[in-house]
Amino acid sequence: MVRPHPERRPRSARLLAGLAVGAVLLAGCGAPDAPTPRFSGDFTEFPLSAGAQLIAPPEEPPPATETSACAAHASLRPGTPSLGGTLGDIRARGTVVVAVDQNTNLFSFRDPTTGALTGFGVDLAREVARDLLGDPTKVEFRPLGTDDGAEMLAHRDADMVVRPVALPCEAPQDLAFSAVYLEASRRLVVRHGSGISEPADLARRRVCTHHDPASVSALSRIAPKATILAVPDWDDCLMALQQRQVDAIAGAAVLAGLVAQDPNLEIVGPETDSAEYAIGVAPGNDDLVRFVNGTLERLRTDGTWTVLYDRWLSSLGPAPGPPVPQYQD
């Protein structure tokens, strides 16, 4: 019988030792513990702009027989300019002071290159200065806040207000108006591929518009099942649409300036009721109202109105022609 070598362990011992070493190696090469998840905070929607108001649709939509048109807005007929009164004060001062919204693209905005105010409404004001003072540059533009400008006119901080806000059906008592210088159909601005093509598609969706009574009332009428986001500035609507806080913007003349700022947007929908725009003047300044209406009459007859429309608002469609003025006298 051969005796085992004294320095050689039995096979079973060697096997157990190998298994022990393997277990140690496996333990050392094991997968690391899963990382502890980290949280940076809860997701929240972008805040709405200052002064924004959400208006829920009524439980019962208004009856379909409700009229959608206002009575035609009538102003004072152009007359012979007086030597005194408001016109005399402006001539003595040497400038026409005009309050404008400075943030509405293509209507009244600052050119990003020159910093100068420009746009359809700005050009209208310059034409009044051309006729009254003989120089279209004799205009002092003052920034208009989120109100309708009545306070500025009452405190004589401005002679006129030119802003792209539709006339209400019932004229306010604290403003007088020129004849209508622009009519535009109310339509929608949406993102490309939104699936929205008409007001009926706005049911149970959120739609932005200006907070003036005419715009809110019109949107409630054409899209009675939509939730309305009413804001003090049209640019707030653009931002809300870009941030997907709303599905569409409802408006009229201002829509051209909105789509010009974002190639991902388009104007859609049939032409619904029209919005009317006029120049605001302090009540009692009838001489200025008549003079402004004389300038608007010239713009209609000499072709200047069409030139201005083609320059600034052609994305709304071909020039429809200047509106026919309505006078109360």
Rank of each mutant, 00 (worst) to 15 (best):
P10M: 14
P10F: 13
S12M: 06
S12R: 13
R14K: 11
L15E: 12
V21L: 14
G22D: 03
G28P: 01
T36S: 12
G41I: 00
F43C: 08
F46K: 05
A52I: 11
L54Y: 06
L54R: 08
H73P: 03
S75W: 05
P78S: 01
R93I: 00
V97W: 03
T104Q: 12
A116R: 08
G121Y: 02
E127Y: 08
K138H: 09
E151K: 12
L153E: 03
L153T: 00
A158D: 01
A166I: 08
L167Y: 02
P168D: 07
C169E: 14
A171H: 02
P172K: 03
E183D: 14
H192Y: 06
G193W: 07
I196G: 00
S197Q: 09
H211M: 10
P213L: 12
L219K: 01
P224Q: 14
L229E: 08
A230Q: 06
Q243F: 07
I249P: 02
I249S: 05
A252I: 00
E271T: 12
Y277R: 01
P283V: 05
D286S: 14
R290Y: 04
V292L: 11
T295S: 13
E297V: 14
R298G: 03
L308F: 09
D310Q: 15
P320N: 08
P322L: 04
P322R: 01
P323M: 10
P325N: 05
Q326W: 07
